[in-house]
Design a protein around this nucleic acid. Sequence first.
DNA 1: GCTCAATTTGACCAGCCGGTCAAAGGCACG
DNA 2: CGTGCCTTTGACCGGCTGGTCAAATTGAGC
Lengths: 210, 210
Amino acid sequence: MSNSSSARGLSTGGATRIQKRNRAAILDAALDVFSTHGFRGATLDQIAGAAGLSKPNLLYYYKSKEAIYTALLEALLDTWLDPMRALDPEGDALGEILAYVRRKLDMSRSHPRESRLFANEIVQGAPHIHNALAGDLRALVDDKAALIQSWIDAGKLAPVHPHHLIFSIWSLTQHYADFDVQVRAVLGDEDPFAAAPGFLDTLYRRMLQP
Amino acid sequence: MSNSSSARGLSTGGATRIQKRNRAAILDAALDVFSTHGFRGATLDQIAGAAGLSKPNLLYYYKSKEAIYTALLEALLDTWLDPMRALDPEGDALGEILAYVRRKLDMSRSHPRESRLFANEIVQGAPHIHNALAGDLRALVDDKAALIQSWIDAGKLAPVHPHHLIFSIWSLTQHYADFDVQVRAVLGDEDPFAAAPGFLDTLYRRMLQP
DNA sequence: GCTCAATTTGACCAGCCGGTCAAAGGCACG
DNA sequence: CGTGCCTTTGACCGGCTGGTCAAATTGAGC
């Protein structure tokens, strides 16, 4: 035999070609469905249909709806936080912040489903990732907030509350993904991402220039 | 008889005392449930339980789940937009903007359920209020954006894209209600609303001071 | 306290939803 | 080409969900 263990619970490393293909298809389909309907609003039939599988086949790869959902959240959480991790203590303070804003805005444009997935989860009280928020996320944010504070103390940024500065970046950038329909309804034909980068750049320059 | 028509479809004006009480209880319960679970995630049993009624009794006052939901959205949409309507063309430009920000932030603190109700609806594509967004909301925003542009042209505000300025106010203020769990998970014991007003005041002063 | 509408309820239903299972079909390897 | 696992499927299940209905109860004006 070419594979010594069942599909359930395998790490992707030891997976069959078929397993890789189907698991990827499932997670992509699940991202589509969960991000537009939320956890409870999504159905296994929808996900199975979008992945091109039957429902029992879906459950052959992930043992429950919740297993799909948490696998998806775990796989995406790290990626989602990478732009913040990239804040470089050695870099130019204002330049680092502006680059972070730019990276987050780019993610809102290129990965709106991921943004809405987390938005749905958090608006509804983050029942599945509350631990990650109070653990890893908080530690990361505290670390970067301290970095920002050190920049302020060194006179490289105008004084602001570092945590609220970070919240503002999340809020302003993800707004374009999470509230996309509203933004487009108000703007009409104008592409939101045409003026957004310049607007945010100006906002943070004026606010943070020492 | 004291009342010539059935409960269904009555305007609140001609409603019995019992009708008023129960309809209010239903809408309050529905706000609780819909804002934390979204439309599809909410169940009639949850709403009926929270309102202290049986499910058939619930459906005696509103003929379907969707009827409750749309009644709730309609009743709240006007209230939700009042802070923007209050922008006064005759007032001091920067002061008007700062007061608007403050009103919106106060609504996030005092009415987080309403904020999350709309957040859920819009993140999931606004299937029930898309018309209101592209109609009334857009008209109102265009009107106020023109006002802001006139302030900019008169040299009373630093130049920014008026629509994106409005988006930023929605985003930054509602973030504290919609992403409450995340904000609190990161801040720990610190009350988000302690520093938020000062932070936003500073942000908009620095960005908009001509 | 009678009358009649307003209100409330228990029983019920059809459809959906997450999940199970045994059996059938593929696939790779000797 | 046979063996044995991997993969897929159709049929099915119990519980929940939105919604209905006829009957019972309550409330207000006379």
